[in-house]
Design a protein around this nucleic acid. Structure first.
Lengths: 138, 138
DNA sequence: GGCATTGAAAAGAATCGTTATAATTTGATA
DNA sequence: TATCAAATTATAACGATTCTTTTCAATGCC
């Protein structure tokens, strides 16, 4: 089961963390800290933002999640660490995964100075819903 | 002269704004609001952050600058609006421009729903300086 | 087995970057 | 130069994130 990947990091499995893992498992919504907090606070009313941030930091350091900086002012988290790119609606900030591969090679005079570790393409535009809403504004 | 592009927006040319324009003109450092504030406050000691943010918002709405969300927790500004990509040091957050063009076409079943307006590639890794510093840590 | 010690996790408090408000000042136009 | 909209500034508020303290659970020791 997919969920098991969270269990084998040698970290304490607290109820709060299990609730967060459960919410993240298979989640494709690229949630913010606020999204995660609101999703689990019903189950654990004492949950605090600090616990969300602490847990996400631990998961990040273990390589279980990716931190996205696509939206100004807040972090977004991606539970899928496999190489992929993102399509972002500039209006509602919804994020859609793009799994296509691209040729992104750079000239050696850049790579000799800069040790490149990864790439990430942001495609930005308007999602179907926001396109329709924009059209309705006369 | 390049500087003129800031003058023809139909906005008031105050000394504070001229100082900001002067700092931005030809600047390749992708500065934050704090960087801009610190660069200009010597010339205008009464300069406030509100003026920096206001001016950058105006420039953004006029299409004279780009707002970058590459660093979590703060905005970075790019005075160069021509299509290009960025190389980001994950350690010191320095940003280098990449002017190469790439083929980033997507399948039509994505583009029919999502109205794509632009693309931005983030190459991330370690800059020369941070690579050396990392090596010195035994 | 009970108790002290340790270290990690959770909660509460504080900080940082940014935005909003309101009063004053300024630049552009007539 | 007088007018007025627009820009600047100080201050306060806000949301997102980080820091510090407190709590708790696991372990070792008597």
């Amino acid at each position: 089961m997919e969920m098991d990947k969270y269990r084998n990091f040698g970290i304490k499995l607290t109820p709060q963390r299990l609730a967060i893992f459960k919410f993240l498992n298979g989640n494709r919504s690229h949630p913010s800290a606020d999204d995660i907090f609101n999703a689990v606070k019903n189950e654990y009313p004492t949950m605090s933002f600090a616990t969300v941030y602490n847990t996400m930091d631990v998961l990040k350091s273990k390589g279980a999640i990716r931190e996205l900086t696509i939206e100004s002012g807040k972090k977004r988290y991606d539970p899928d660490c496999s190489q992929h790119h993102h399509l972002i609606c500039v209006e509602c900030k919804v994020v859609v995964d793009i799994f296509k591969e691209f040729n992104l090679s750079l000239s050696s005079d850049i790579t000799k100075d800069f040790n490149i570790k990864g790439t990430h393409i942001e495609f930005y535009g308007l999602c179907k819903r926001c396109k329709i809403l924009a059209g309705k504004k006369h």
